[in-house]
Design a protein around this nucleic acid. Structure first.
Lengths: 332, 332
DNA sequence: CTGAAAGCGCTTACAG
DNA sequence: CTGAAAGCGCTTACAG
């Protein structure tokens, strides 16, 4: 059916081995032969069969991307698409394909990974969320299968990972609010099981402590990453007290919080989102947020993984991607 | 390194051929042998190497998904993630993997496809947007490579595709608005090059015609699929006249339109979005929208493609996915 | 500088 | 009911 290395060989009057060497631009092949073979390839419109190559090389040049399946709406968070774009761009530049899979639920995740690793489809795997005692990480470590994780894992030393400094990023936000005279600051985060929630909460607590403000657990909520869960949490919070400000771990959460605030005519209470999604800019008032550079997170995840796979000497096991506070009307 | 069919064979004292037949549950193998071989597979934790299998079978059991790269923000539209989820779910159920690639720009698209097809990585390809004289479609047809397209192509008869009935969906929206007494209705769509914009515009025009309202080109805008482009278009529109209602081809566009309306104290003008994204529900006023069932579009795209690849007899070359008008405050 | 041969891990037509 | 052999399309150590 399609043209193979043999067809090229016979057309150029050389052996298949020679054609293969021309493809890899082996220096021991004469220029004359190279020219002839390349002409034949062009005439026949030859493209190497990558499956065959993968089998001999024991490398598929593809990366597996595991998306979370646990929470229905999690995937709708623009973070994932942005990270995917970063991953995809970098991988493409290095000649890698991306295979993407999703888990249906938490238990399913390890099963998906088992199949992926066992089938030998991918050279390495990118995990997009991290939890405490993460089972996927444990599994891949045990299998000694190359992987990288977006988010800070338990074992920072022996895992490849990329992340923002979420503690610091949230610390700066809360510290700034305190400097502006806010004392009573609410915290509305995503589910506690995710490391990212934990780290941002730590930054919040640290800022309070540094500024000698006692933390009040009644001001702290950890729910789902949805607009509605955040709306409900904020209503609860408002029943408890009227805060000076509310910080959140995601713009979607900030949107829900803003809705509750506006409903209670408290639209002027300071509010901060996270991840700086497009729509935060267009809210009324526009919502301050922290740009976490999701695309860059993806790019560096791919970079770290590919370096590792190709056994480049890597001087680090992780990258910390910079964040940036974007101030808008909601904190002015 | 990893365990192969040979290892299983020697452990079970049979030939590799027999092991292979047990894997495919060939009926000519005795139950006793099957049991023995399966035990060996379990003990050794054997999983077939799918790359090797692909090479012999000339089928990779993976589908290529091409995402648009032309417009930076297009991908942030929740539609794509929802469609991806549908594709991924269906494919997973049928034992297919998804390879995803993106084009950097329009010209790049055919090049990406050339590589994908030539490398023989995928059994079929899913295209997620359709334009007039779509080059990607032309290319895949010429190569006779199996593919399916989300959106209605030029050649409806000889292409596999899934789509909503966008003409009808928009017709119903506009017809309803007219029945409610609106006459002067603005239309703000995405870029004209996309079929989907065209079809929704057709539905708009048809509804006007059926109701004997003359179309006014000054009420019609076709810009990018971004909040901001829509905001600008709406401002322009408002300078021209004060409409009774505005229909759009996307929620993101409706968001931008709403912002312009509210700024001009015209928040009470009827407004309709499209694609029914989560946030439309939480806008103030909440925005009516059309649910296009993106996940179902994805599922049926995968279904159609897989049927085609596996040469199931398919009684149709396309599926029309139902839409549903979700009425909210913006049209009450 | 080039070729023949072996091998990657499967599947399947052929033979018994 | 089972096995030996050939083949899928590459790459590379070995030989010359």
């Amino acid at each position: 059916m399609s043209v193979t290395i043999k067809d090229v060989a016979s057309r150029a009057n050389v052996s298949p081995s020679t054609v293969s060497r021309v493809i890899s631009d082996n220096s021991r092949i004469s220029d004359a032969t190279k020219k002839r073979v390349r002409a034949a390839m062009a005439e026949l419109n030859y493209q190497p069969n990558l499956i065959a190559r993968s089998l001999t090389n024991k490398s598929t040049k593809t990366l597996g991307l595991l998306l979370p399946g646990s929470q229905e709406d999690l995937l709708l968070n623009p973070f994932f698409v942005q990270a995917m774009r970063g991953i995809s761009s970098y991988a493409k530049g290095k000649g890698y394909y991306i295979l993407f899979t999703h888990a249906d639920n938490d238990e399913d995740e390890v099963e998906v990974l088992t199949n992926l690793v066992g089938s030998q489809w991918v050279d390495g795997i990118i995990l997009t969320t991290v939890k405490d005692n993460d089972k996927s990480i444990a599994f891949l470590k045990e299998k000694k299968h190359p992987f990288v994780v977006i988010g800070k894992p338990d074992d920072e030393e022996h895992t490849y990972w990329v992340d923002n400094d979420n503690v610091k990023a949230m610390f700066q936000v809360v510290d700034l609010l305190i400097k502006k005279g806010k004392k009573n600051i609410g915290f509305i985060g995503g589910a506690h099981e995710f490391k990212v929630t934990k780290h941002r909460l730590l930054g919040y607590l640290k800022a309070l402590k540094v500024n000698n403000i006692k933390a009040d657990l009644n001001l702290i909520y950890e729910k789902d990453y949805t607009e509605n869960a955040a709306y409900e949490a904020t209503k609860e919070l408002l029943e408890y007290c009227v805060p000076d400000a509310i910080v959140t771990t995601d713009d979607l959460i900030a949107f829900g919080a803003q809705r509750a605030l506006i409903e209670n005519n408290m639209g002027n209470i300071s509010l901060v989102g996270f991840n700086n999604t497009v729509l935060s800019m267009y809210k009324i008032p526009s919502i301050s947020s922290v740009d976490i550079n999701a695309e860059k997170l993806g790019m560096f995840a791919a970079k770290l993984l590919i370096n590792h796979i190709e056994k480049q000497k890597v001087d680090t096991t992780n990258y910390i991607i910079d964040t940036k506070f974007i101030e808008r009307d909601s904190t002015k």
